[in-house]
């Protein structure tokens, strides 16, 4: 399955990329997506994750075509 990964704000800057496109052959969670995309970097503790623009936990499963996003705590308003 194909997963699009997006990064925002300080997390995007520290990774140095805004997007990844990954292929998985078996089932995977949001946490697995992070590890595959960033094998040498731990996801910062306070990070948030979304699948298809809804907040999710790292143990949520992803499916083909999902857009997974990782970003730091939001600071709008």
């Amino acid at each position: 399955m194909s997963i699009k990964v997006r990064y925002f704000a300080s997390l995007k800057e520290s990774i140095g990329r805004s997007e990844d496109n990954l292929e998985f052959s078996g089932p995977a969670t949001v946490g697995d997506v992070w590890h595959r995309a960033n094998p040498d970097k731990t996801l910062p503790d306070n990070s948030l994750a979304a699948v298809n623009m809804d907040y999710v936990e790292l143990n949520s499963a992803v499916k083909d075509g999902d857009e997974v996003a990782f970003f730091p705590p939001v600071t709008g308003g």
Binding site: F8, A50, P73, G76
Partner: peptide
């Protein structure tokens, strides 16, 4: 999902870390 990055008078930039 909004994120603020401040530009200080000192020219330093910093991301706000939490609301």
């Amino acid at each position: 999902p909004f994120w603020k990055k401040e530009l200080l008078k000192s020219q330093a930039e910093r991301w706000l870390e939490k609301n």
